[in-house]
């Protein structure tokens, strides 16, 4: 028996099924792990996939959990489509959160319609600033942006830690957490007595804008051309460097907004776990979502579901909470593999 991979594009109706197949395959693989731990996989995946949707409270919690993932997913999508391999959403998110806190704690005299736009603008700018050096190094010096964006994640975390252990250390409790932002800077709740906040609408708006830019503007077309092949794009008369730079900066800015969202919508102060790996999860969301805005929306919701479910699974079945992380990482790898079916088919003979 020989395995051969042949070029053969999949029919259009088959493409949306690919992420679903990847999800099914992931459930199959991770079930083995659940069985090894001595739990029932049907129970486990009931808690992961169905239980969070069964009550209003937990459904809203899924939306809360998916909010930052919509933003980091959109950020990664924007960069990847434009051919800029931004692995630094985590660091850009941390910088966005830091800027939002710096602005938010000084907004006691300002009304919300001043405070909130200022924080959003500050977070966007901080995220952009954090990706600027890798972007310039890529464009001007042709240095692989994967390594530089990756290393700057570690630096961003150290900066946050230095601020929290220095000027912003809580003078009373001595905890490494910043002072609380002003009440007017806190995102209003969308539904009273829940955690769902303005950030969710902002994230949906960002998704809409990303969709519009990528599919309805000439610039989106240029980005796609650069993403598919800078050489060909250059021959077609596209300013490749400029396009790359803008893709990178907008991506960093959106990741910065994810940081604002966590400060103004959830924590109300800065802590060093504020990003908590959600920048990296954005890469999973973007890949599972097939690098398009609506796919990212569904993927963020799905990962939010797993995040919410993993706490219940851990409580109810005694399975370590990290099963959720295992599922997400497995899902990334299976999606990558299954995406091949878009362009290739495997022939066994």
């Amino acid at each position: 028996m020989k395995l051969r991979i042949e070029k053969s594009p999949a029919p259009v109706w088959f493409r949306p099924l690919i992420p679903l197949l990847a999800i099914l395959f992931t459930i199959l693989i991770t079930s083995v792990l659940v069985i090894l731990v001595g739990a029932n996989p049907f129970h486990a995946f009931y808690y992961f996939l169905i239980d969070p949707l069964s009550s209003r409270v937990s459904f809203i919690e899924v939306l809360v959990k998916s909010t930052p993932l919509l933003l980091t997913g959109a950020a990664v999508t924007f960069a990847f489509v434009g051919g800029f391999w931004n692995i630094g959403a985590e660091g850009q998110m941390l910088m966005g959160a830091t800027a939002a806190t710096a602005i938010g704690i000084h907004m006691h005299a300002a009304p919300p319609w001043v405070a909130i736009p200022l924080m959003l603008a500050g977070g966007f700018a901080a995220g952009m600033a954090w990706v600027l050096i890798p972007a310039l190094m890529r464009v001007k010096l042709h240095i692989d942006e994967v390594v530089t964006t990756l290393l700057l994640n570690a630096v961003a975390l150290l900066i946050v830690s230095a601020i929290l252990n220095g000027p912003w250390r809580d003078p009373v409790s001595q905890w490494p957490q910043s002072p609380e932002i002003a009440a007017s800077a806190i995102f209003p709740k969308l539904i009273p007595r829940t955690r769902l906040h303005l950030g969710f609408l902002i994230a949906l708006a960002v998704i809409l804008i990303v969709w519009f830019i990528l599919t309805r503007t000439p610039f989106g077309l240029k980005m796609k051309a650069v993403g598919l092949g800078p050489q060909a794009a250059r021959f077609a008369g596209i300013n490749v460097d400029r396009t790359l730079l803008i893709s990178a900066l907008v991506s960093g800015g959106i990741a910065g907004l994810a940081g604002v969202n966590e400060v103004a919508g959830i924590h109300y102060h800065l802590i060093d776990a504020i990003a908590g790996g959600q920048g990296y999860t954005g890469i999973i969301v973007a890949t599972l979502g097939g690098l398009n805005a609506w796919g990212v929306t569904l993927a963020a919701f799905f990962i939010g579901l797993i995040d919410t479910g993993s706490q219940t699974v851990s409580r109810a079945l005694g399975v370590p909470i990290y099963l959720g992380d295992v599922i997400q990482a497995t899902l990334l790898l299976t999606t990558l593999a299954f995406l091949l079916f878009q362009r290739y088919r495997i022939r066994i003979r």
Partner: peptide, 26 residues
């Protein structure tokens, strides 16, 4: 399979860390 090396490598990292933490708790 010849898939993107950036994303698959990062996926290996995420999976390895998740499996380790899962195993550590276990």
């Amino acid at each position: 399979l010849g898939v993107n090396q950036h994303v698959s490598g990062l996926g290996i990292t995420l999976l390895s860390i998740a499996l380790s933490m899962f195993g550590f708790r276990l």
